[in-house]
């Protein structure tokens, strides 16, 4: 399906943006939470793939319907890899690291089930200016 004009592209972007926001807000009851795991070389070397799997497993076991785990690129903060970003609707995204697979259980408990902040580990707050194009 080749995109043949700027208008078509812009229409496509609107569709994708709404799919993306649908993903965030959720088709289910309650709000959609997105967990982003940095899957760059640095992250993977530090065990991000295990964290990714552990998150999926944990969410599956707890039967959490409104949580989605997404792999993204390098978050830049190599010292704290593996990094997980928690995105909730109407909340400023928060980055946590290092989140290794063995603490995923508590991490989900605190951030998703209890809707709180993760107590152990380093809490990073994302406040850099990103250019909005």
């Amino acid at each position: 399906m080749a995109v043949k004009s700027l208008e078509e592209l812009r229409k496509l972007r609107k569709d994708y943006q709404s799919t993306l926001s649908l993903r965030k807000q959720g088709e289910h009851e309650g709000d959609q939470i997105e967990l982003r795991v940095g899957l760059g070389t640095c992250g993977i070397s530090a065990g991000a793939k295990d964290t990714f799997q552990a998150l999926l497993q944990e969410i599956d076991q707890r039967k959490l319907k409104n949580v989605k785990v997404v792999g993204v690129g390098c978050m830049g903060q190599c010292t704290s890899e593996p990094i997980v970003e928690v995105r909730k609707p109407d909340h400023e995204p928060l980055l946590y690291g290092p989140i290794t697979s063995n603490i995923v259980h508590d991490f989900i408990e605190d951030t998703v089930v209890n809707e709180d902040y993760y107590k152990d580990g380093t809490l990073l707050i994302k406040t850099y200016e990103k250019v909005e194009v």
Partner: peptide, 19 residues
């Protein structure tokens, strides 16, 4: 450099990375 400077010093055995 394999570019995992955050884990320095790094040793790899096959695909496995030790940081």
């Amino acid at each position: 450099c394999i570019g995992a400077c955050g884990l320095a010093p790094v040793v790899t055995v096959g695909e496995k990375v030790y940081g």
